[in-house]
Design a protein around this nucleic acid. Sequence first.
RNA 1: GCCUCCUUAGCUCAGUUGGUUAGAGCACCCGACUCAUAAUCGGUAGGUCCUGUGUUCAAGUCACAGAGGAGGCACCA
Length: 680
Amino acid sequence: MPQPRKIVITSALPYANGPIHLGHLVEYIQTDIWSRFQKMRGNECYYVCADDAHGTPIMLRAQAEGITPETLIARISEEHQQDFARFNIAFDQYHSTHSTENHYFATTIYERLKAKNHISRKTITQFYDPEKSMFLPDRFIKGTCPKCKATDQYGDNCEACGATYSPTDLIDPKSVVSGATPIEKETEHLFFELAHFEDELKTWTHKGHLQTQIANKLDEWFESGLRAWDISRDAPYFGFEIPGEKDKFFYVWLDAPIGYMASFKALCDRKGMDFDQYWGKDADTELYHFIGKDIIYFHALFWPAMLSGADFKTPNAIFSHGFLTVDGQKMSKSRGTFIMAKTYLDHLNPEYLRYYFAAKLNGRIDDIDLNLEDFAQRVNSDLIGKVVNIASRCAGFVVKKFDGKLCETWSPLALALYQSFIDKSEDIAGLYEKREYAQAMREIMGLADKANEYIDDTAPWVLAKDPEQQEALHESVSLGINLFRVLITYLAPVLPTTSAKSADFLQLSSLQWHDIEQPLVGHTITKFKPLMTRIEPESLTKMMDASKTDIAAQAPKEGNQNNEAEDLDPISDEIEFDDFAKIDLRIAKIVNAESVPKANKLIKLTLDIGLGERQVFAGIKSAYDPSELIGKHTVMVANLKPRKMRFGLSEGMVLAAGPGGKDLFLLNPDDGATPGMRVK
RNA sequence: GCCUCCUUAGCUCAGUUGGUUAGAGCACCCGACUCAUAAUCGGUAGGUCCUGUGUUCAAGUCACAGAGGAGGCACCA
């Protein structure tokens, strides 16, 4: 047998600002399956993770809840770990980026990089929120990408074209915290000189550490050039203070991936392992990061550069996966397709989802869809109908007729069939290794079909009636049980609970991959108890209904969660009456409305406000048909500075609420209000 | 209008560097069986591989154009 490999694997750290949902679970399940698979194969494998606990969103949310950030992250960590545990995600260590280990590695890496002149300092003009009296983090400014002119992009990199830049390069920036237009203010920041690593990274990204799709994407990023990465943030900030600086903190994205190391260090301390053997510069152990396709930039560029620059081992590979859709649609709170881990667990067995994801995952970065009808059918027929059924249909005979004991000798035919199952072992292992789980599941189910065919061919229920055939019967059902054991072993990485129950039933202390090379002969099993029950369609409807209410319950508590358009905005800062009085709101009658043909969001409104007519372009096409608007009364901001748009001059704005899309609701005054009346 | 990505059986997906009559599972229908969680086994049926044009001896696979879908952008002051 080959030497056991020494492997460290990670999943991306969930942000300590919201609940775990089914989208997260794609990654944790994918990683956990891989981890369990490696362990079953006899490799030394450590799966570590942590909460990503720093940054402005956490700070602001804690403020909003009137608690300290430490209290907040402790609570969220608890919630996250509960969800993970119930989904059987078996971390060897679950830690936090707000930990002494992480502080140590963050400062160590920083100091090493600094010593090698990879850290520079520049006084930059950064955006500052005058209402909140704070510098705005990259992700709290949105604006237009200077390269491709994509709007609504974050301050650090453009999701549309992949360009990187600094927030001041943004066109038309806005504070996400207060909505105010930020002012520019000078401050000194520290930078990690990514460009020093350009050659190294160009080589690294094409050495098989990344999926090809990703490596190609990175080439585009190389073309637009690597810029220094701003790694410091000014107070107030929830994070680690930078050594040798005053009121400067490490940017959350600097210490987040370092959290992988911190978590592993905590594991080493607990287990008496040598950290350097795994993370030292020349470590020959293996290191893999499972991540979503959205955070490739950090993991494929910054992270290897940081590690290399600080004399640590770089990852052997980064495994990216796609996003989850539910019934073909993006997970969305307003559509009710946003399913939290907790909600799922209230209604369904986690093994179902683990299997379904496994049945769909491959080694590429394609999105996967949770189709609820397919989900129920697939799980029921594959797992219950095929696999579990094999044990169920043989066990009765073994227990009743042979006192639970499997036969001692096998015919050549039986041996050959068993061997044909074992012959697949390395193929299936290879598929797991390549993260081609979908294909692995197909192979395993093909074998399950063969097992059922065998039972049918030998017809134990017929043999049972013939006293002459007891030996044949014994072999048939014993082989059936043995085949089941092989199948459940192959499935064990995916189905930890069911396989554990199966081990009980088979009276085996564990299910290791290579154990199946020896069939169970003369071995005694126990009475069969159902290992898994089928999915009731009603539980799916219940779960979907509950998702809608659970989200509603979550929403007020959530406060501002960046990145989620459906979330409620936080209440803005207090203003003086005078500030309010500046806004001249008027009742307006929509006298004409026409859609702007070349724009897919705009409707051109002609508004009567008593004192004349105004032309306003409103981005409400997704929710309203122009014809239904004509004649309606609404409210407009009458003294807003007119704005030249591509399609004409917009002389104000109409008031509407809602997250967007179809959920957009125009304000409508009560009967009696007439055009021109001031709203106050 | 522009950019990116999709489109193979009712559903979920395979289809290797272009190479015979395009595959699987599930669902459906028919039959068998009754050991098994109405599970299982056999069989039938089901596809203009989105459309069109082209390259080629040969196209699901390549190129171009178009349609439909998803996402992004121009605009939503």
